[in-house]
Design a binder for these strands. Structure first.
Lengths: 132, 132
DNA sequence: GTTATTGCAAACAATTTGCACCCAC
DNA sequence: GTGGGTGCAAATTGTTTGCAATAAC
């Protein structure tokens, strides 16, 4: 649960951040690994460790896919979605109904909020028809 | 991704449902396993399979913890939370700011929504102080 | 009797940990 | 020289799959 308490930003952390900035979309650690691998030399473990720190710095956000893979991205591009429990496909939602609530929560609680995840689950039209 | 298309409710599925109903709180497959094990004889794989089907029937919901474990519970007891990225503790939130949005989404889209998850991430007060 | 369900064990995949090496200060 | 940062490989953990035995209808 606890990474070593960071002192300053390390080269690896910067590299990971840069990669995320460059690719502009949520990526898993493993994908980051193969993507960065071609450029510099970095270990998978280091990527995981860096992601952990960057998250605690409030710089990146995550979401967990249906298969259990964690995707990381720069904070801001909040994009929520509806995910089908059958085919696993995710359909993006372009609005966020939680912004105001989050602001309110920030004011009223001592918890330091960086980001949130919102996901709807159910069946997409084809699957709803097909499954039962 | 895809379980076999269910025909009717199986004994195992009913047992899992009953266990969830009885324990009244989100449980992982593994915990369900050891809990049910003492009562009846059931395999872990069967539990996973049953959970998958029950989910598609719109009977249970899930959320993934910070450690990657999936917790299942009966649909309704929606309880969202704020999770600390450092210590991993989750603090429940008692209201849900998404209900109305979900209803709207149901009307406007052909996706069949069963439930949603909402989670805020950041640092709890002690950790925010301690980490940096 | 045929088909779907189940349990077990093996397989898988994502992530974490132990440890030696190395670099910066 | 000391301490944190890094890479590698091994270990861990949650989940899925293959398959033979079984139960349901």
């Amino acid at each position: 649960m606890s990474n070593p308490s960071p002192t300053r930003r390390t080269p690896a952390q910067n590299a990971v951040l840069e990669a995320l900035r460059h690719h502009r979309q949520p990526m898993s650690a493993q994908v980051l690994y193969s993507a960065m691998r071609s450029q510099c030399s970095i270990g998978l473990a280091t990527i995981y460790r860096s992601l952990g720190v960057l998250q605690k710095l409030g710089l990146i956000q995550h979401r967990v896919t249906r298969k259990g893979t964690t995707l990381y991205s720069l904070i801001k591009h909040e994009r929520h979605c509806m995910t089908c429990l059958h085919c696993g496909q995710s359909f993006p939602i372009n609005t966020c109904p939680v912004m105001e609530f989050e602001a309110e929560l920030r004011r009223s609680s001592s918890f330091k909020i960086f980001y949130h995840t919102l996901e709807f689950f159910g069946l997409c039209e084809p699957c709803a028809y097909q499954v039962f």
